[in-house]
Amino acid sequence: MKFNHHLIVLSSIIFGFWLDDYLNQFSIKYFIELNFGFLIFTYWVFAMPEKIQSLAAMLYGLAVDLFFSNAIGFNMLFFVATSYVIHLYVFRLRIFSYFQLSVFFSGSSTFYIACKYLLLSPYNYSYYVLILSFLINAILWVGIYLMMRAFRRKIF
């Protein structure tokens, strides 16, 4: 993949994290943590597994860590791990229905949120946040999937 294409993918992920930062200060009052950034990243890996591999996942994670995280390495770790799981099961995932996909990706995103709270903010760990975020992110995933697919077909 060309460097420009990597920049486009990274920009969309950073935009997702920026959106999360902006919206979560309002949504967290209702125990909802949106996770656009992570879902956009998983979409790209799911859509182009042969182009986004370990090094790209690690560098995307590092960039996100530098701008948005409280600890360097957290997003790197999750991006690499998620990318590996998606690579391993990508052909199985492609025959899944939208419902199954949204459950899988929202589940991954909830695991990411749970680990984020446990590692970086254990005082604020809450099962309400996890359950509600799972449901909301599952709904969001379908929208993100359709929008990102349209975007990818235009750009690549």
Binding site: N24, Q25, I28, N70, L120, S121, P122, Y123, N124
Partner: peptide
């Protein structure tokens, strides 16, 4: 963001 939700 962190003031409302997190430890930092």
């Amino acid at each position: 963001k962190n003031y409302f939700c997190c430890s930092s």
